[in-house]
């Protein structure tokens, strides 16, 4: 039996065929560097590096000349104060004490919130009546700006870690819950029916069809909740705490210590990017079957 159809994929193009024949020598080499598919990543990285360096140099140049350095600080000020603040002998506690306090709270809140969110998403998506009854309540609780819950949590759980962890939990819970719920609800009816005809039991269909189908949604929920969860931890500390990056932000704000404020912003950026990389990697492994797309890899940072 002859194959009548071929696999859908673009054939690798011979780049040099696209080139005018008069291009030779150094120009040819330069053309290849600019166009070779394998070097794409290197080109992008190089351009990003250049962009970043230009921004830093501009910042340093402007600070103290065009704009007061107390307003916008400067890269060199950031470096010196970074070493000052992260010194273990720092009387306010080293930067790393505050950093790990925030990270730990975020981690626990995130873990508990995500587990509960995924579990609830599964259960509610499978039981129609419960979903129908509970939906408006969930929308109502989810609709309230999360910061409004903070004072109540502080009144209930004190000023230690617990209210911060719980604030993170509530944020992460709703995001993962909603995405898991939508993911399970979106599993193709046809796919489930076909699996039933092929002899799949309820449990086997859950394991082999429903969970893999919903997993891109669940991953998406997990990814978007990282920065939002961090908002919870920071806001909790900002309101009342004696430790954490949110506490530092609040203190530096009172002291008009802009270098410290900017330093913490950078620290948070690095943290989010790192966690995101880990999740992207895990997602890439779990969802290897998906057609590769360059979209959807970035996490939205909430305002």
């Amino acid at each position: 039996m002859a194959k009548t159809d071929e696999v859908k994929s673009t054939p690798p193009e011979d780049l040099d065929l696209l080139l005018p024949p008069e291009v030779t020598g150094a120009r040819l080499l330069w053309w290849r560097v600019r166009n070779a598919e394998e070097l794409r990543w290197v080109r992008v990285a190089a351009l990003r590096l250049i962009f970043g360096v230009v921004m830093i140099v501009l910042w340093e140049a402007v600070s103290g000349r065009l704009i007061d350095h107390r307003t916008i600080s400067s890269p060199s000020l950031l470096v010196t104060s970074f070493f000052e603040i992260s010194d273990p002998a720092n009387p306010d506690g080293s930067l790393w004490v505050h950093f790990s306090y925030t990270v730990e709270n975020t981690f626990w809140g995130y873990l508990l919130g995500a587990l509960a969110g995924i579990l609830f998403g599964f259960v509610l998506a499978e039981i129609d009546v419960v979903a129908l009854v509970i939906e408006p309540f969930i929308m109502a609780f989810n609709g309230v700006p999360r910061i409004a819950y903070a004072p109540l949590f502080i009144a209930w759980f004190g000023i230690e870690r617990q209210p911060k962890i719980i604030l993170v939990m509530t944020i992460v819970f709703f995001l993962t819950f909603v995405s898991t719920f939508a993911g399970i609800r979106g599993v193709s009816r046809d796919l489930i029916n076909v699996s039933r005809v092929l002899g799949g039991s309820k449990l086997a269909i859950l394991r082999k069809i429903v969970i893999p189908s919903a997993s891109p949604w669940i991953f998406n929920g997990l990814k978007i909740s990282i920065p939002f969860g961090m908002v919870g931890a920071i806001v909790g500390e900002y309101i009342i705490a004696d430790k954490g990056l949110g506490y530092l932000l609040q203190r530096y704000n009172n002291e008009y210590y802009t270098t410290g404020l900017i330093l913490i912003i950078f620290l948070l950026m690095i943290l989010v990017i790192m966690v995101n990389q880990v999740l992207n990697w895990a997602e890439g492994r779990a969802l290897r079957w998906r057609p590769t797309s360059r979209m959807g890899q970035e996490t939205v940072i909430p305002g």
Binding site: S188, D190, L191, V194, S195, L198, G199, G200, S201, A204, K208, I209, P212, L287, W289, R290
Partner: peptide, 23 residues
């Protein structure tokens, strides 16, 4: 069925094996 309803996360062979796994 009219739509092939293959599992996108399984290779061709693993898709064919699915009903055997079910059974």
């Amino acid at each position: 069925t009219q739509q092939d309803n293959l599992l996108p996360w399984r290779t061709l062979r693993k898709n064919v094996l699915l009903p055997l796994e079910f059974r």
